[in-house]
Amino acid sequence: MSELAVWATIDVLPGRQAEAEEVFARSRRVLEAEPGTTSFFVVRIDDTTYGIFDTFADRAALEAHIEGDSGRDHVNSLVGTVFAAPPVITTATLVERAATG
């Protein structure tokens, strides 16, 4: 099976950027222990919008992540305190991958 990718955008409540970035750092540490997670990136799009890009070895790894410690329930529990709403998530199949440097 092909490697899967997730692109998500999430809006942070005004003034909660530092807390959101702590959540993302915690997620990175959790994801490092998920054997099927092959990459994790967080980008700041503007003052209150972040993008998250993850890749997973297969569907089982993606589902384990969604149900895991930094997955859906954890993020949704922070809606209204750190995040303005649940993330908007798109899943896809990775077509090409390159690592440089």
Rank of each mutant, 00 (worst) to 15 (best):
M1H: 03
E3G: 00
P87D: 11
F83C: 03
P86Q: 08
E34N: 07
V79R: 11
A25T: 03
I10M: 05
H74T: 03
A18Y: 13
E63Y: 15
E32A: 11
T81C: 04
G68Y: 06
I10R: 01
R28H: 14
R16P: 09
I10N: 07
D69M: 15
E67A: 15
S2P: 08
A25D: 00
V12Q: 02
D73A: 14
T91E: 12
G36M: 10
L78I: 08
E63K: 09
A61W: 05
A5Y: 01
L94M: 07
A98N: 04
A5P: 01
T90V: 14
S27H: 12
T38Q: 10
G71Q: 10
F41P: 00
G68T: 02
F24V: 02
G71S: 12
F83Q: 02
A61Q: 04
F41I: 06
G68S: 02
D46T: 01
R72V: 14
L62R: 03
L94V: 02
V79Y: 13
V82L: 02
I89G: 04
A99N: 04
E32G: 12
R29S: 11
W7E: 10
A92I: 04
R59K: 02
E34M: 06
S77K: 11
A92P: 01
T91H: 05
W7L: 15
L4W: 04
A20R: 07
R29D: 14
L94E: 00
E32Y: 08
T37S: 14
V12W: 10
L13D: 02
A61T: 02
T90L: 15
L13W: 09
A5G: 10
G68W: 12
P14Y: 12
A92G: 11
N76L: 14
S77E: 08
R26T: 06
D11E: 15
A99H: 02
R72F: 14
F41R: 05
S39N: 08
T90E: 15
S39V: 10
I89Y: 10
A98D: 01
E67P: 07
F24C: 04
T49K: 13
A84Q: 03
A61G: 00
T38F: 10
L13N: 05
G15Q: 08
V75R: 00
I45C: 14
S2H: 01
V88P: 00
A57F: 01
A92E: 04
W7D: 08
T93L: 02
Y50C: 03
T93N: 03
R26H: 14
R97G: 08
T100V: 13
S2F: 06
P86L: 06
V82Y: 05
T49Q: 13
A98E: 04
T81W: 09
E19Y: 13
G68M: 08
T93Q: 00
L78G: 03
E21A: 06
D46L: 06
T48A: 05
T9S: 11
A60G: 04
V88L: 13
S70M: 07
T90H: 15
I45N: 12
T9V: 13
V79W: 14
R28M: 12
P35R: 00
G15I: 12
T38E: 13
G51I: 06
A85D: 05
F56T: 09
V6L: 15
D54C: 11
S39W: 09
E34L: 09
P86V: 09
F53D: 01
S39E: 11
H74K: 12
